[in-house]
């Protein structure tokens, strides 16, 4: 009985904790300081949007978080583990719990939709059976409403369909955090809105936390529980959409005009 209470307390602690913490993050390219003492916290189950202009370092931030870029200094804690201290094997274990939707979708051109979805499964879950793989692929494709494209090549798909397939590939490992790098860039407003609605539906179904990088205000308005405004490499402001919209600060106001 006591053990059950302890387990429940541990689960409660996990479910209410911070899944991602970024502290004092610095990243430069030559003399260009892209991130300059940047701080951020993502709470379990939250949809956090990082809002910033093009070239403000949003994509650099998200690539540092997933370990594709190494920061100059600072701490990035994913599930309590500082990823800058991890070796490649340990980093892969952490990455298995994090989904990443690339701005360009990054679907493998030489593979079918099925192979694209199978690829991360085979890599992270090596002992999964073919039947399980087939079921997971089918489920992920049904989640994004594109089950019929399973044997198609990425080149045969439209921009919106590619984004959905990329999202399905991100979902297939049932990630606890999903990082979205400009999810609506390059899409028409209608398709962009559909993608945001899909992201929200998926977030509810998988109860994942989301970090969304965007400068698309429709995306920000529909998706954000909380917004962090990134200006000059720093967290310039933080708050809910309506709070920030009311701000008279010119740095924040420019995004809402």
């Amino acid at each position: 009985m006591k053990e059950q209470v302890l387990i429940q307390a541990e689960k409660k602690k996990e479910s209410s904790g911070d899944v991602l913490v970024v502290k004092h993050l610095y990243k430069s390219f030559g003399s260009n300081k892209v991130l300059n003492d940047f701080n951020l916290t993502l709470v379990n189950g939250e949809n956090l949007v990082v809002l910033g202009k093009s070239g403000s370092g949003k994509s650099v931030l998200i690539k540092c978080i997933i370990g594709l870029l190494m920061p100059d200094s600072g701490v990035i804690e994913l599930f309590g583990r500082n990823i800058t201290d991890l070796d490649h094997e340990e980093l892969d274990k952490v990455r298995a719990k994090v989904g990443f939707l690339f701005q360009s979708n990054a679907l493998y051109d030489s593979m079918t939709v099925r192979q694209n979805l199978e690829f991360p499964l085979r890599r992270h879950w090596m002992h999964v059976t073919q039947q399980e793989v087939d079921n997971l692929v089918q489920e992920a494709l049904e989640d994004v409403g594109l089950a019929h494209t399973i044997n198609m090549m990425p080149a045969e798909l439209s921009g919106g369909m590619r984004k959905r397939i990329a999202l399905a590939r991100t979902l297939i490992l049932k990630p606890e955090i999903i990082l979205y790098d400009e999810p609506t860039t390059g899409l028409d407003p209608v398709t962009g809105k559909e993608i945001i609605e899909l992201i929200m539906t998926i977030q509810k179904k998988y109860r994942s936390s989301s970090l969304i990088i965007s400068h698309d205000m429709t995306c920000v308005r529909l998706a954000a529980d909380r917004i962090v405004v990134l200006i000059n490499g720093r967290c310039y402001a933080e708050g809910a959409y309506d709070e920030l919209k009311r701000s008279v600060d010119p740095g924040i106001k420019q995004f809402f005009e």
């Binding site: 997933i66 594709l68 360009s104 493998y108 051109d109 030489s110 690829f119």
Partner: peptide, 19 residues
């Protein structure tokens, strides 16, 4: 092929996929 994979972030996607 590798150049195109690089500019379309496919190489990064591979790394994120545990490869």
């Amino acid at each position: 092929e590798l150049g195109s994979m690089k500019v379309t972030e496919q190489i990064d996607a591979m790394e994120v996929s545990g490869t």
